[in-house]
Write a protein that binds this DNA or RNA. Structure first.
Lengths: 209, 209, 209, 209
DNA sequence: TATGAATGAGTATTCATTCAT
DNA sequence: GATGAATGAATACTCATTCAT
């Protein structure tokens, strides 16, 4: 199927470019250069630039859906422990994303085509958060306040992601006209802290007290 | 100071627009319309569009730095428990972000000016992750496998953020030429799971008191 | 003859489309869709788009020539009255045009593929002229200044056509560098009026018989 | 008013070009070259190419409306003979069109931007009609069947215009599904002939017989 | 200093034509 | 002959930036 191959070739090149340069900084001329085809050929397979991008993401989305589906994995949710189930989900998702880092990058919308200068500036912010957390964790380990077995790198990255998204969720998406009160923010903060501090699962009975 | 006021007015309008429409979909004409000034005036205070954006983010960054700085808070790291210290950090960060949701949005780069259609499509992906996690957590609570006291909303949001960023960190930023092996991904997954499952801190020695 | 049939099929489809949408808004893709043939096939029978259009018009022209030719009609110009001769010409021409309205439309170049919006705007102009004339003629009939037997519709249409073409002939085709003087235009106007007046208006009573 | 002057300059250049080359063959680049302005300047004054064209025609239309309006000429329709009234209308219209031959050309849609080759071909058709009529008229004059005082040129042009538009009116605009019957076309033809004959031909010398 | 008209490089998209199969 | 995928020149329109007033 020559036609399908062509379409796939265009998608592959576009994916790579969208991931590297973002939506806006990726021009049709880049795609045709990368795919070594003529300008008009792109429009034989796609309606426009959006169509390429959308096809890419829709495809990614539908593949992801089938991957995370527990049924697909032939797992009986009753015969599996909560922790094992949680682990399964996390693994499946990470396996999926590891497989196609370009689409992962696109789906994460991290610096989607900002001008280089601007993009780097924004990165600094994230990096700084992560590095502050890293320092804190290491210090915590030195003083035996953070468990030695903890993988500092993973934790710092996770905390950064969790923190930023929590902020985004409440302060951007669920933004209140009058803003959040000190109380409310403290409540969110404490719940955030609790989860990391105590973990998610019901503590084994043993001796709670 | 008339000049400073002008500059601030431009920044304020730009911030609002950049947050709402993103970098690319925010045009100089939008900014001058919002700020009720002439086209040329913008260039009296800023070199170009990038300069406005950068000023905005740099300012945000430096304010954030001073906020999270432990020194500023007059806290002695020795006289404070690890948990309290962690809580303090989280609170400070969330307080800071709650204060300026526009800049929070910009700094998070969530949908930075993608065309509406495209932006919505990408949102679907995140929402689906969060909603799947939410369902799982609720089910876990029903079966008494997830602790009742857990705030499901916050947890789902945090997990989504943590998961996406972990994927991004390893599979995009620290991307390996040959990709990650099954073993490596499992290791990352397990560390991720561990943190949420067990929490971050050294378990109290059975009988704390 | 398979080949001739194909060629005719292409011409027929093209004619219909050129008439409906005009030259520019009729694309090769429309023609092949209508004719249910492949893109390349068109170029087996015609050099290019122009060639199709030209073939169409040339054919129309040569058919028209034979129709209006008095010889063809076996009419002896000496044995026929001037009026009958005139009538014959008019009839022949109208019969010919009635037979192929698509080509009639193309040959008249009325809105040859202008964008819909633009085309409608231009139509308004013609329509207004015709409707003004119609009103005048009806009023004239009420006041018994225009003969009752006059077909107002035909007259209005004819006058519009005659007027516009006269203007075009003198002011566009035979345009003078310095323009036409008031005198000259009045002369043209009067000759125009003369021709119609004697035919349109109620003959002075005097001796009708 | 500098801005108005610019707008007018663009309109003037566009008018000239639209008239000469038609809508489709007139490109923005031609207009800016003619007006000696930058590409973007056009879009400061007009939304797009259509807008220029439409502005031109609308303006023409409204000016024409005021010119043909009898009220504007301070003419009392009651105190004027039907013939004088008719003459006035014709004169006003021709004066108006003589004044702006470019707009006249555009409004008449004669070859609106067809490729040169195609345009000339279509012209041949019109010209042939006019020349056939001219010949007939001259022959008629020789045989004393057409009055000597008749201006052959004006008459031929008028007849061509009247004929083409009559054909267009009935066979294109008022096209019937089943086509016009022989009878119907003869009726239209006869009405057409009637109008012209009474005005064109030498009146019978009272007693013909 | 403020203005806003003018600028023109840059971009997506179209569509007649070609040519290998 | 027939096909239809590939081509790429051509075109309208955008928008950050400049500069004369």
């Amino acid at each position: 199927m020559k036609a399908d191959e062509r379409k796939k070739a265009i998608l592959d090149c576009a994916k790579k470019l969208f991931s590297k340069q973002g939506y806006y900084e990726t021009h049709i001329s880049h795609i045709i250069q990368e795919a070594k085809i003529a300008r008009g050929t792109v429009y034989q397979y796609f309606d426009n630039k959006d169509d390429i991008f959308i096809t890419l993401v829709e495809d990614h989305y539908s593949r992801w859906r089938s991957v995370v589906s527990i049924e697909q994995a032939n797992i009986d949710p009753n015969s599996i422990s909560a922790k094992a189930y949680f682990q399964h989900r996390i693994r499946q998702t990470l396996f999926f994303m590891a497989e196609d880092s370009d689409l992962c990058n696109i789906a994460l919308r991290v610096g989607l085509g900002l001008p280089e200068k601007v993009s780097m500036l924004l990165d600094r912010f994230d990096k700084k958060i992560t590095s502050l957390i890293t320092e804190d964790l290491k210090m915590g380990q030195q003083f035996n306040k953070v468990r030695d077995t903890l993988n500092v790198e993973v934790t710092a990255v996770m905390l950064t992601g969790a923190l930023l998204r929590t902020a985004y969720h409440f302060f951007v998406k669920k933004k209140k006209k009058k803003g959040y009160s000190k109380k409310e923010i403290e409540k969110i903060s404490d719940e955030f802290s609790d989860i990391f501090m105590a973990g998610i699962f019901t503590p084994k009975k043993k001796s709670t007290k």
